[in-house]
Simulated scan of single mutants.
Amino acid sequence: MAIETDMTGKVALVTGAASGLGRATAQKLALAGAKLCLVDVNAESLAETAALIAEAATEPLVHAVDLADPDACRDAVTATVDHFGRLDALCNIAGIIYLANSPEMPIALWHQTMAVNLSAPWFLSQAAIPHLLETNGAIVNCASSAAFIGEAYAAAYCASKAGLVNLTKAMAMEYVKQPIRINAVAPGGMLTNIAVNFQPPEGCDVDLIKRFSGLRGQVEVDDVADMICLLASDAGRGYHGACINIDAGITAG
């Protein structure tokens, strides 16, 4: 899927930028002309992303923080605006998943999943919205096909992503009369570091996991990154309060 976007002169903050979809999105936004703040907890891999972008575009701002901390979320937005003088797009892509039998899910991992997948986009959006209103900007949240179907052993992940979809819609309605766009994408399984490190719980029923694997295979990371770039740019002006499913038919029925 080749979508033409123009982000010349605009500034985007991308979370989860150290690898996978976040890195792909950052690279595409840079090629479209955007100046970038790259955010992730993995400082080493984040530096690798920054080096890749600097080869083809302007040198990005690197901000290595743990988004489970609400103050870190706000600081990331502040750092972006202080450095570039504006903010045009917030791309909330960072996400984590832990698979577990529900009674055995550690409390700490439940809270971490909610903090990174749901609370971080909220706190980042809180800080970003005043700046995005000034630039007629956009928020793009990365949900999942897991927001729409039950996935065995992934209760925390499903709950966090379903919450993110409705958070997107609620904020979109709050600002439906303002020149800001708030949308989400919902990918199916992609070949990212999350997929590579996929570890089902011991003794799980493999047939249950196959139910959300998809008959058409995994989704291309670049296809999802293209859609995020579209929604982040003026080319996505017709979208507001939408969640675009990119899952090769997993949620079709």
Rank of each mutant, 00 (worst) to 15 (best):
A128H: 02
N42C: 11
E134N: 11
A32I: 06
Q178T: 13
S45F: 10
Y153W: 10
V39A: 09
V11A: 07
S233E: 09
L99W: 04
A143R: 00
M114D: 08
P179C: 11
G241R: 02
I107S: 15
D40I: 05
R211V: 06
T251P: 00
I182L: 09
A47E: 13
E220I: 06
I129P: 01
A138P: 04
V165Q: 04
A54M: 08
K169L: 11
G16T: 04
S233N: 10
A56C: 13
V65D: 09
S144C: 08
M227K: 02
D69K: 07
T15V: 12
K35L: 13
D82W: 08
I53S: 03
H83L: 14
A51W: 02
H63P: 01
E55F: 08
D40R: 06
A147W: 00
N42Q: 15
G249R: 01
G253V: 02
T58Q: 15
A138W: 03
L46D: 04
A34Q: 01
H240K: 14
D207I: 05
N141Y: 05
A242D: 10
G95H: 04
L61Q: 15
K161C: 02
A128P: 04
G20F: 02
V41E: 09
G188H: 00
D88F: 08
K28N: 08
G214L: 02
W122F: 15
E4N: 14
